[in-house]
């Protein structure tokens, strides 16, 4: 499709990957947070926890390729008052460690921070086996978990601090590629459970997270040229969802598009639909990966093939407005 622009081809200024921002933030927070212990399963050079490890070797453990064990160890550390941060690829930590997340972390409600990097199809060439596309659904299904999906470098940095400040289990989802900046400031507002309105509008609301926020802003530019004013919410916290922001969006704009780099089932779209259906039913359209695995290819090529471009968002916006 000519002229299809994914977030990775946006004209917005490019920032670092959210995994890089997390790695730097964790390293910086290590000194003021002696309770933080980082555990790795042989991927710290991918997740960027190696930067913390180099600075605080006494509080860093690499336990080998063993994600179930990784999660169990975190449960043990947390039960002794530590604040464990465990990171691996989103698919491995959530899928391989799921029963341990359920029993050793969620059930006792322990203060474990779970970080999944390389989420979504934008990892590109490595293909489906390395792509976490179900991680948000799985994390949301763990009672008591807070689930966070930051959109860019600055918000990933802020989210890392918020994750550590929160008492209780948190899942944070991060991406591999460098992504456009959504926020101009290095210190954007960031409160868990509180969406950021990154663009205001009255004709519809695009609710997005991760790299789809940048795509939503680009879509809003395209729509503005047609006289359609889109509000864009950076819904960085999927659980607990910001019900107030959704209610206002439904009442004031009357139509919603939800965009995420995730399967249709159980992600942001599902969570938003539940809230809107209860609070203020309005037409909703969804832009996501549907019900299929990813594959190998360039990140840009995949985002286009799987329908996650600004143009796809704009088309969904027109469709949802027509359904008002």
């Amino acid at each position: 499709m000519a002229g299809a622009t994914s977030a990775l081809q946006s004209k917005r200024p490019l920032g670092k990957a959210t995994r890089d921002a997390f790695g730097r933030a964790l390293e910086a927070l290590g000194a003021e947070r002696p309770d933080v212990v980082v555990v790795d399963a042989d991927v710290s050079n991918s997740t960027r926890t190696e930067w913390f490890g180099q600075k605080f070797p006494d509080r860093f453990f690499n336990i080998g390729i063993a994600e179930s064990n990784l999660v169990g160890i975190a449960g043990g550390l947390a039960s002794c008052g530590k604040t464990p941060v465990i990171a691996s690829f989103a698919c491995f930590i959530m899928c391989n460690g799921y029963d341990q997340l359920r029993m050793a972390v969620a059930y006792p409600g322990l203060n474990v921070k779970v970080v999944g990097t390389h989420a979504g199809i934008s990892i590109g060439e490595d293909g489906a086996s390395q792509m976490g596309i179900e991680d948000v659904a799985l994390a949301c299904s763990l009672p008591g978990f807070v689930v966070v999906v930051p959109a860019d470098e600055a918000s990933a940095k802020a989210a890392t601090r918020a994750m550590l400040d929160h008492r209780g289990p948190v899942y944070m989802r991060l991406g591999r590629p460098d992504v456009p900046k959504v926020y101009e400031t290095d210190n954007p507002p960031f409160r868990l459970g509180q969406a950021n309105t990154v663009r205001d509008g009255r004709d519809l609301t695009i609710v997005a997270n991760g790299l789809m926020v940048a795509a939503a802003l680009d879509a809003a530019d395209q729509l503005a040229a047609e006289g359609i004013e889109a509000r864009v919410l950076d819904m960085h916290t999927v659980k607990p969802i910001d019900r107030e922001a959704l209610k206002k969006a439904a009442q004031e704009t009357g139509a919603i598009v939800v965009a995420e780099e995730h399967l249709a089932h159980g992600g942001l779209g599902s969570v938003v639909a539940m809230a809107v259906a209860e609070l203020e039913p309005v037409p909703i359209r969804y832009v996501n990966l549907g019900d299929r695995f990813g594959e190998s290819g360039s990140p840009e090529g995949l985002l286009e093939k799987f329908g996650l471009t600004a143009e796809n968002l704009a088309a969904a916006a027109r469709a949802v407005i027509a359904a008002k």
Partner: peptide, 23 residues
Amino acid sequence: LGSPLEGHPNMARLGGVEASTGS
């Protein structure tokens, strides 16, 4: 993009691959 020779073997797309691996 489009090649059955994916980054990690996928038995659903390539004959001769006996298990889809990568995890």
